[in-house]
């Protein structure tokens, strides 16, 4: 009640989140600007993210280089399927993160270990995608090619491989996503540079703004990778799903 007789209520401010738990968007943004110019832990922001991306790309490419021929061999030969199907089917459901301790024992915590881990993450996905791409070919397409005079090798080159590309692209999208998730987790465990290392170290110093910034950047990059893969898919295999 004021002197003039009006009610004057000041509402309670309630429970206020302190920036140490949840910093304001402005704070996160300004920290982004700061780290982008000054860097974090002797490396620029671009270096941190670039290292993570580099590991993902190398690991994924190695996984694809080995996995796709392995998948083709499994799709085409019973011998290969007999030997590798149990291995692939066993390894596929093992989360790559569960392999981190073993990879550290074998290859240490350096670049080699991380790339081996990402290679393994991509390998099984790519092998399964390539295999289902091969075995998914409609028998009438193969028959048609035979009755048009194509040899076995020509059928491989002109029918089976193009027919499997859409499946392989789907596999590549999944594998890139898994690799990106795995690299961040691997960097949480141990790394000199990398997006995961950045947020792990920041969390030890309670720099929540850096942690949040890192999470958002990781999300944006993961999303961008997927969009780029989709775009490449539309461009390279426009016949996907049209068979």
């Amino acid at each position: 009640m004021t002197a003039k007789g009006t009610l004057n209520i000041k509402p309670s401010t309630g429970w206020q989140m302190e920036p140490i738990w949840l910093p304001s968007p402005e704070a996160v943004l300004s920290r982004l600007g700061e780290i982008a110019t000054l860097g974090f832990r002797n490396s620029t922001l671009a270096e941190h993210l670039g290292f993570s991306l580099f590991r993902v790309i190398v690991g994924f490419l190695l996984g694809a280089i080995v996995g796709i021929p392995l998948g083709y061999a499994m799709g085409l030969s019973n011998w290969f399927r007999g030997w590798f199907d149990p291995i692939v089917e066993f390894m596929r459901p093992v989360p790559p993160l569960a392999l981190i301790p073993l990879v550290i024992i074998w290859a240490g915590i350096g670049e080699v270990g991380k790339i081996i881990l990402l290679f393994l993450a991509a390998l099984w996905i790519m092998a399964i995608a390539a295999r289902s791409g091969v075995s998914g070919v409609r028998i009438s397409k193969v028959h048609a090619a035979y009755s048009l005079g194509a040899s076995k090798w020509q059928i491989m080159r002109h029918v089976i491989i193009p027919n499997s590309l859409p499946e392989i692209f789907t596999g590549a999208r999944v594998a890139m996503g898994v690799c990106w998730g795995t690299v961040v987790a691997a960097e949480l465990v141990a790394a000199e540079k990398g997006a995961g290392m950045m947020i792990m170290v920041a969390s030890k110093f309670q720099s929540t703004d850096i942690v949040l910034m890192g999470i958002i950047l990781i999300g944006i990059i993961g999303f961008t990778i997927d969009m780029l893969m989709r775009w490449a898919e539309r461009w390279l295999v426009p016949w996907k799903g049209k068979g």
């Binding site: 009438s140 090619a145 048009l148 002109h158 068979g243």
Partner: peptide, 24 residues
Amino acid sequence: MVFQQGALFEWMSVRENVGFGPRM
């Protein structure tokens, strides 16, 4: 052989499909 459906190569244009045999 002419099949009921789905035996064309959808990664090739109409022209490439028709030219498949001669090309092989």
